[in-house]
Structures are given as structure tokens and as C-alpha cells.
Design a binder for these strands. Structure first.
Length: 498
RNA sequence: GCGCCGGUAGCUCAAUUGGCAGAGCAUUUGACUCUUAAUCAACAGGUUCCGGGUUCAAGUCCCGGCCGGCGCACCA
């Protein structure tokens, strides 16, 4: 496409006829379109209410017909028609020269036209801002993904679907917070700038602080900080915020994404699973009014309880023979190889089992399910399973074929945590750039005593995708990460851009 | 990072085998006193993403680059 900043460049350079350029500093806004519609819904066609309102919004459509004109105005609540007449409206001529996309403030009587459309009859009006770029085709909107994602402000006006999806995301955030608060969790904030990247298996972004002359990593998870707050006595905490992972971009992955992490002292993973299914299903119900929905054309019920299925059990069903973390590594590796995956020597049976689950069983999961009891090898922060020392008390919820949440009984033994960290560090030394390093400050915290605690992480963007029935994560992120055009990059000379 | 597909007027999209680059909407102008994507008429609007190449002739074919969508890989 052409450079996205050039949208409507031609229109911008065209003369603007007899339009004034001065606009007011404020407007005495009195009513929203939705309220006007609700309050005056009773008016009959041709009836005048005798009541005056002041509305403001954007001109979406304009129909002039001789000495009358009709505009469709939209504000944040909906649309209402503006009805101007040469005999009764101030500066009628100017009104007919409004552009689609201009912001206007209008004061006038609420009437219903002879043809039955509820309208504000324009008495006085002001152009609050002019649109010097157009908002795309008034029927087709803006279709170009590049423009839609880079100029979401235009996309929001042009495309109803965008407004709906981003508003649903906002409703999800609100419902999550309210349910966390209702559950007795306090919202906290922990550092995004971290001296080491830890709490998850992921590659970090690196940055530099000038005054401290230190390297920092953008956080890949707030997990360890939050557990330190539990050590400190905040028994139930949550953080809803951005994390950053320097990895591939896909329809389900944005480099920065929003996670909800929460921790409750005295809970184990069974307690947390119960909380999770109620939280997620409750949010869906809060936002959509039901837990029975359609995702990408397929029925999806979010209603709890969700089945609990051990990972080994699901893997066994998928491969057609009994496998577990105790199955000889050679056998697991052979099963992986049948599926086109070559297990590196560093993978023990636990990692092999997890990979086998992922390539054989994961994508077939549709309705919500808790996959439980992950191998210790792939769960360095989770507490050992009380029934099998090679497993952990961990769960991941899967919905629509991908992971939505992850949680576990937290490992709170500082001695064992050090061993786990050291195993991770060894993997890192062997070339695994997603392995964790030893976090001495976190180990010190555990030495002060972390009570039995369960933790949870939820992929909020993915939850929003399900609620909004979107298949691409970018549709629920206002400004998704995109590759910058060359002339947007700071410090470059901008040659060769567009 | 790899593969496939795409980028044409401000927007949405056409353009046959390589043969004069078009339409609708928007903008500008005119007509019209109840429209609903109003309608009718007229004018104007182009670096066909960028840079090379082949050809009498390139939006179209070839090479390189930029950006995006989808798939794979990685991951949540």
C-alpha cells in the first residue's frame, strides 16, 4: 500500500470552499444520542417535542435536498439525525457544506420527521473540528489492514466491528477487575523494568537505563514480584497489565500482551482451578450475558465446571498407548519423531511428554478443559505433585485449541527452588535462550517464608478474542505492534520509506 | 526466520493474452422543502508501494527491496 500517513492526502490539499477555520474551545454538551432516542422514543412521525437538546458528535452522512438537509451524527453512544432547514437553522448554507467526518455541536428541538426518523432540528450549530482527511468509503469503510492497525482512530469511526471488539475488550478488563476485587484480591503493580527476565520461559526485550548505566529487561511475567508481596503479607494480590516477549508475531501473539496474574495464600491448585473457571465464565457472562457462545462459527460453552484432565492421560489418548512421565525417554522420543519432532538430547522424559501433548492433543481441545499435572521438568516454579514426585500440581486451561490460563500450587521451598533455577541456568548455558536464570532476590524472599499459595495467569487478549469472536489478536488490541515504516524510526534519515 | 497471497484515484474495488488506467463513493460546482448509502447533472482527481530489468509497448512478465494478511516455526 501507499504510506499509511498519506490517507486522504489529496483531499487534504484541496480547497475547502466557504468553510470557516475557527472552532470553539468548548461546547455545552447536554445529551447523548442514545439518551435522546430513549427519551423521545414516543414521538409520532411529524410530531415535535417542544424540548431542546444540545448534542455533539461526528457527521457520518449528509443528505441535502434544496432548502432542507439531513445529517447522520454519531457520538460515543450511537447515532441521531440532524434536520436542518434554510428558514429555521442558523447558517444553513454552511451546514450543507459540512464534510463527512466533521465534528459538530448542535442545539435544537427534538422532533420526529414525517418519514419517521427521530431528529434534532438544527437551531444553532457549531463546527467543533474539521475532518481534513476522509474516513474511507461510507459504505465499505476502511478495509486495508495496514491502515486499520496503524490508524485505529480512523478505523474506529469507519468500522462498526472495530468499535464493538475494542469495547468488548474494555468490558472484559472491567469485569476481570470487579471479579478480582469481589474475590478479596487487591490490585498491585510491580516493575516492568527488571534486572533479570524471569517468571516464564520466554525471550525478553533488552533496554538500557542511562543514569543507572544498567541493562534492564522488560518483564516477561510479574510472577516472582507478586509472590514476594504474598511473602510480605498481602495474601491475595492481582496485577492486570502488560508483559513483553521478544518472540514471533502471529494471529495469536503480540509482542506486548496483557496478562492477569493473581495469587492467593492458603490455596492449592484445586482451589485455583475452581476460582479460574468461575472467573472466566463469570466474565464472559458479565460481558455477553451468557456462557453459551459461538466462536468462529462453532458453538462454545464456557459454563463451569470444566473437566480436569491429566496431561499424560490426554497424551495417551492422542497417541493410542499409555504414556506418562515414567515412560522411557526413548519411547517418548520415538513417538515424537513419528510426528515430525526431533527431541534434542537435553529433553528429558518430562519435556518429551509435554511436547507430545502439544503436538498430538492440544489442537483438538475446543471446549474449556484443565490440562493438569505437568512434569517437573517443564514447570520450574510449580510445587511437586503430592501423589507423584515427577509431576507438579499445575494446570493450564485450554479453550478453542489454545492455552488461555496457567496456574499451579506455588513452589515455596527455597532449597528446591534454587535447584530448579540451577537446572534452568544449565539449560540456558546449553543454548536454551528461554531458560530462566537464578533469581537470588526471589530465593531470599522464599527464605522468609511463602505460605502455601496458588497462582494463576490469564491471557487477557485471548479471552477478549473469544468474547469478541475475533480470530486475530490484533483486532482486540487498539494499537498492535507492527513493523515501523522506515521514516517512523527515530534517528533514521528516512530515505527509502514511501 | 521460511512459504503462499496481496499493495491501482482520498476510500472501496475493476482493468481479458503484455496494447490509450476505469467505476462507485468522497471532494468541488449546479438542481432539488422530509432524506435514510437520498437522487440527478457536471468538473476535477494517478509516482499503478519503491528500485532495476525484458519488450516496439509493462498495472500485467523477470530480479531486488518495503509493508501487510494467512500458513509454518517459536510462544501465551
Amino acid at each position: 500500500m501507499a504510506h499509511p500517513a498519506r490517507i486522504a492526502y489529496r483531499a487534504w490539499t484541496q480547497p475547502f470552499g466557504r468553510r470557516s477555520v475557527s472552532t470553539p474551545y468548548s461546547f455545552a454538551h447536554g445529551a447523548y444520542a442514545r439518551d435522546v432516542r430513549a427519551t423521545f422514543d414516543h414521538l409520532e412521525a411529524g410530531e415535535e417535542s417542544g424540548s431542546s437538546v444540545s448534542v455533539a458528535g461526528r457527521v457520518m452522512l449528509l443528505r441535502t435536498q434544496g432548502r432542507v438537509a439531513f445529517a447522520t451524527m454519531r457520538d460515543s453512544t450511537g447515532e441521531v439525525q440532524l434536520f436542518a432547514q434554510s428558514a429555521a437553522s442558523e447558517d444553513f448554507e454552511g451546514f450543507t457544506h459540512l464534510h463527512l467526518g466533521d465534528w459538530v455541536g448542535v442545539t435544537g428541538e427534538v422532533v420526529r420527521t414525517r418519514r419517521g426518523e427521530l431528529s434534532v432540528k438544527v437551531g444553532s450549530w457549531t463546527r467543533l473540528a474539521e475532518a481534513r482527511r476522509n474516513f474511507g468509503d461510507k459504505w465499505a469503510g476502511i478495509a486495508d489492514y495496514d491502515v486499520r492497525y496503524r490508524h485505529r482512530e480512523a478505523d474506529l469511526w469507519a468500522n462498526e466491528r472495530t468499535r464493538t471488539s475494542l469495547a468488548l475488550r474494555s468490558a472484559v478488563l472491567r469485569a476481570l477487575r470487579e471479579r478480582c476485587w469481589a474475590g478479596g484480591f487487591m490490585e498491585v503493580e510491580t516493575p516492568m523494568l527488571n534486572p533479570i527476565a524471569t517468571g516464564a520461559a520466554a525471550r525478553p526485550f533488552v533496554t538500557h537505563h542511562n543514569a543507572l548505566d544498567s541493562e534492564f529487561y522488560l518483564r516477561i511475567a510479574p510472577e516472582l514480584w507478586l509472590k514476594r508481596l504474598v511473602v510480605g503479607g498481602f495474601e491475595r494480590v492481582f496485577e492486570l497489565g502488560r508483559v513483553f516477549r521478544n518472540e514471533g508475531v502471529s494471529p495469536r501473539h503480540n509482542p506486548e500482551f496483557t496478562s492477569l496474574e493473581l495469587y492467593s495464600a492458603y490455596w492449592d491448585y484445586e482451589d485455583m482451578m475452581a476460582f479460574t473457571e468461575e472467573l472466566v465464565a463469570g466474565v464472559v457472562r458479565d460481558v455477553l450475558g451468557t456462557t453459551t457462545l459461538t466462536y468462529q462459527g462453532r458453538a462454545l460453552s464456557m459454563a463451569p465446571p470444566w473437566p480436569r484432565r491429566p496431561m499424560a492421560e490426554l497424551a495417551s489418548e492422542a497417541v493410542g498407548e499409555a504414556v506418562s512421565v515414567h515412560t522411557p525417554r526413548e519411547r517418548l522420543a520415538a513417538l515424537l519423531e513419528e510426528r515430525g519432532v526431533v527431541a534434542p538430547p537435553a529433553w528429558g522424559p518430562g519435556r518429551c511428554l509435554a511436547e507430545l501433548f502439544e503436538c498430538a492433543a492440544e489442537s483438538a481441545l475446543w471446549e474449556p478443559v484443565f490440562v493438569t499435572d505437568h512434569p517437573v521438568e517443564v514447570s520450574p516454579l510449580a510445587r511437586r505433585h503430592r501423589g507423584d514426585a515427577e509431576l507438579t500440581e499445575r494446570f493450564e486451561s485450554y479453550v478453542a485449541g489454545w492455552e488461555l490460563s496457567n496456574g499451579f500450587s506455588e513452589l515455596n521451598d527455597p532449597v528446591e527452588q534454587r535447584v530448579r533455577f540451577e537446572q534452568q541456568a544449565a539449560l540456558g548455558a546449553a543454548g536454551d535462550d528461554e531458560a530462566m536464570s537464578v533469581d537470588e532476590n526471589y530465593l531470599a524472599a522464599l527464605e522468609w517464608g511463602l505460605p502455601p499459595t496458588a497462582g494463576l495467569g490469564v491471557g487477557v487478549d485471548r479471552l477478549a478474542m473469544i468474547v469478541a469472536d475475533e480470530s486475530n489478536i490484533r483486532e482486540v488490541i487498539a494499537f498492535p505492534t507492527l513493523k515501523p515504516w522506515r521514516d517512523e524510526v527515530g534517528g533514521s534519515e528516512g530515505a527509502g520509506g514511501a
